[in-house]
Nucleic acid binder design. Structure first.
Lengths: 344, 344
DNA sequence: ACAATTGCCGTGCCCGTGCACGAAACGAAA
DNA sequence: TTTCGTTTCGTGCACGGGCACGGCAATTGT
């Protein structure tokens, strides 16, 4: 037997119109009525019926979602898929999720995506803070407009974001090193990298690398570390790059890759079983999982991107619909270890 | 611009009352009207507004939840916690989840719990099929009454359950063996067990053990396997039991435990670091995770019991509220690998 | 033939909330 | 006192769907 506005109106001797004004603290209520109503509201523990509420204000609210996209399959593909599911759930709550996709390597694309998002006049925004300075500018604008926003993937701590859902990147790197070297005879560790220039980017792979190196320094301080750079935009160059790398570093027994593009080197791995490399990487892209199942890769560390994006969207939806902020602002999500036997 | 019953009524030239009768396939509709309406419904892709629906039939439905419980912390503690969260979510959809807790070792307790559940006159039931024969009887009764039910943890395949959420127990055992022995010098493998008599029980630990043994047979066919039984109800007996076991099996290097009570032996492990045992177990009970973080245990395989119970409850809620069955009847959930570095 | 039953169907109210419109109450100026 | 402007408040409809009630027509019974 839930209490309703009508009950409150009766108990406090006013009309439901007045109760409504008090509950939404709109103007036009005398001090006396206000307090009478508030008293009853508090004492009765009134909670609005969200169904009736959503039904009455049939107005759709828009939630903008900024997503980077490169041409090829990568981490963001997974996020994208998760976003669709979360969007379906959100539409049940009268919230319309609009995806805005931009080229992850282009600052201009990011800028115009921000502009596009603002043009939607959104009630909330979800984005990974890809470009640090530009994100700050955008966030400042959102703050001005009073639009809440949530970060996924990584965060910029000094900003006024409502919630963050992502991986503890440093720990992930640390874990990665532990998995890679656990009980092994480590001779030398190699890393495959994609981009040299990371300045101005808010990129968890950098932090992962730091965590990784920390573990090595703690457990194998004197072991050799080496890195090779490959160019994803030029697939033909990858094989020679790796060949060269292993020629000049024949002692490498363990290999790591901090971004999601592990699949770029699996062809090479398949051709060189004689190296008996132990390999650990990140993110459960289909191609990566396939390599895992083949035994080319020992383990993948994954972060359930679907849950991250869903968490961020849900948090914003709850804020918009129920007016309730999230319990935790920073939500570091579980790092999952995938081996060939639990890849599902 | 969503389509409503009124739209359908207009488009098919009948009244919304008739549309309503068609949508809920109640009687009192002529063949002709029925088909006219159905045609429009299909073509328009009509979906009811669940808020309006819930608002109109404000009737609460009850969902019964049977949960075993022993005195001590175990796997079911985690399930219980997850159930509370899922129940909160369900109450948003006008479904009242009632927990019925019974002693997991008592058949009588299970029986009376079933009776209690039926007395609630529930619209649905969620339960782990702990006692096989009794569960069959109960399920038969539910089938008679037309009450849908969902299994968690394990399932009885021949029954008419609506959905199952659980772990692929055989694969879990297989994975467990892979984790335990991966790249190790295995001399002999020991198992710690709790109950000797499993007949009449529907218990995933048995299947886990089978999966475990399969892996060993495939990869280390000639290695020795040994088992020790401990009695959880008599904590004092545990240490001597283990002492005796390792005295007569000094070559054991790897240890496994198939149920959730790994914490029962962590004291002993802590006292015997000289054995350098590699240990793998199941379920993220707090005590188990603590042992993991201390380094006493190498890895835990966990099954996110909160998500299992939540999945089962959600499936039933969706059925009750939206009238939609689940996409998949059997939902094998991801096995999570926990090490000291991703225990959170 | 008319009355009674049955099969189909439309109307209208209800759920709890949001919000527009206009009425009442009040004070101040004429 | 009348008039006008504010402030404050109540009324009533809308949202979309569930469901009871009663009406109309076709059929059956006498």
């Amino acid at each position: 037997m839930k209490i309703t506005v009508k009950d409150i109106a009766r108990l406090s001797g006013v009309s439901k119109g007045t109760v409504d004004r008090v509950l939404h603290n709109r103007e036009g209520v005398s001090r006396k009525s206000f307090e009478k109503v508030m008293k009853v509201v508090r004492e009765s523990g009134y909670e609005p019926n969200i169904y009736a509420s959503l039904l009455a204000k049939h107005g759709k609210r828009v939630l903008a979602l900024l997503l980077p996209r490169s041409g090829k399959a990568d981490y963001w593909t997974l996020v994208d898929a998760g976003a669709d599911k979360a969007a379906a759930a959100a539409s049940n709550f009268g919230v319309d999720v609009k995806k805005i996709v931009y080229d992850q390597y282009s600052l201009d694309a990011f800028r115009s995506a921000c502009k596009e998002a603002l043009d939607l006049n959104p009630a909330g925004v979800v984005l990974p803070p890809m470009f640090k300075e530009e994100t700050k500018v955008f966030a400042g604008r959102l703050d001005e407009l009073g639009i809440p926003y949530a970060f996924v993937d990584s965060r910029i701590e000094e900003l006024n974001y409502m919630a963050f859902y992502g991986m503890p990147a440093f720990s992930a790197g640390y874990l990665c090193a532990a998995l890679l070297t656990d009980n092994q005879n480590v001779s030398a560790v190699g890393a495959v990298r994609v981009r040299r220039d990371k300045e101005g980017l808010s990129d968890p792979t950098v932090t992962r690398r730091n965590g990784f190196i920390r573990y090595l320094d703690e457990h194998f301080p004197d072991k050799k570390k080496a890195a090779v750079f490959i160019d994803p935009s030029d697939p033909g160059s990858i094989e020679p790059a790796l060949d060269g790398f292993f020629e000049s570093n024949p002692d490498i027994s363990h290999l790591v890759m901090f971004n999601s593009r592990l699949y770029l080197i699996t062809d090479w791995l398949e051709k060189h079983p004689e190296r008996k490399l132990r390999v650990v990487g990140f993110d459960n892209l289909e191609a990566n999982v396939a390599a895992l199942k083949k035994g080319l890769v020992t383990a993948l560390i994954t972060q359930r991107p679907e849950q991250q994006i869903a968490g961020a969207i849900d948090a914003l939806v709850n804020l918009l619909v129920l007016g309730k902020g999230p319990q935790k602002r920073d939500n570091f999500m579980h790092m999952d270890i995938l081996t060939r036997y639990n890849a599902d």
